[in-house]
């Protein structure tokens, strides 16, 4: 908890707050809503970049904590931001339904399945970004590039799938409350992937960070 507070008070970058409110793009018609999750990835990159510029690692590693504690805190803190992003996304989905929704031609409609989609995007981001980042914390841009390519490929595939793959086109990309069981299962699958992927990311990142020599 102390480490999470340290992340929030000393490492949080203003884009973290700004990108949370970019979930309001859900209200925009004809937009690939998965991109709002990418914006949070961008905020995470800025957090890591700011940490580097502020010599956060050398400060943290002189505190009575282990390297594993430092890694766990950073990824969990980013995980909290991602969950907050999805919660806010849910709020905007409800607002969109309240003011009247229409089909989205650029990927999944705003609805339950989109939350599952967001979890898959975050799982993908966490599994690629953090293990690469903790291999060399002085190069957060390189890991962000690889994670961004993977996320955009997934978002592109998802948009294409809403036209070509029957499960996406006929079941997931429909207005709620149609096909809620399938959408619920898809979202649960996304949640499982998000939790397992983030846990895997933490373990892998700890191993990488434990073995590197830090040039601080």
């Amino acid at each position: 908890m102390k480490m999470l507070m340290k992340e929030w008070k000393l490492c949080m970058h203003p884009t973290g707050y700004i990108m949370l409110f970019c979930t309001a793009l859900i209200l925009v018609p004809g937009f690939p809503y998965g991109v709002t999750c990418f914006y949070m990835g961008l905020a995470i990159y800025f957090i890591c970049l700011t940490a580097r510029e502020n010599h956060d690692a050398s400060y943290t590693l002189t505190l009575p904590v282990s390297r594993a504690d430092a890694v766990r805190a950073r990824i969990l803190f980013c995980g909290v931001l991602e969950v907050a992003d999805l919660l806010l996304m849910s709020v905007f989905i409800l607002i969109k339904y309240a003011i009247g929704t229409m089909p989205n031609p650029a990927g999944l409609d705003a609805g339950l399945a989109l939350i599952g989609e967001g979890m898959i995007i975050f799982a993908l981001f966490n599994m690629i970004y953090f293990p690469l980042y903790y291999k060399d914390i002085n190069k957060p841009g390189k890991s962000f590039l690889f994670a961004s390519i993977a996320v955009f490929l997934w978002i592109t595939m998802e948009v294409v799938a809403t036209y070509t793959v029957p499960f996406f086109r006929d079941i997931l990309d429909t207005p709620d409350p149609r096909n809620m069981l399938d959408k619920g299962l898809y979202t649960l699958g996304g949640l499982a992937l998000f939790l397992a992927g983030t846990a895997w990311s933490i373990q892998t990142s700890i191993k990488k960070f434990d073995s590197v020599d830090l040039s601080l």
Binding site: K6, K9, L10, N54, D56, S58, L63, P64, V65
Partner: peptide, 23 residues
């Protein structure tokens, strides 16, 4: 270390506030 300055734009009281919780 002379070459290292942590969190250059945070107030000293904020840095201290976080640091002291660990000790």
């Amino acid at each position: 270390s002379a070459g290292m300055t942590y969190y250059t734009r945070k107030k000293l009281k904020e840095i201290t506030g976080v640091t002291k919780t660990f000790y």
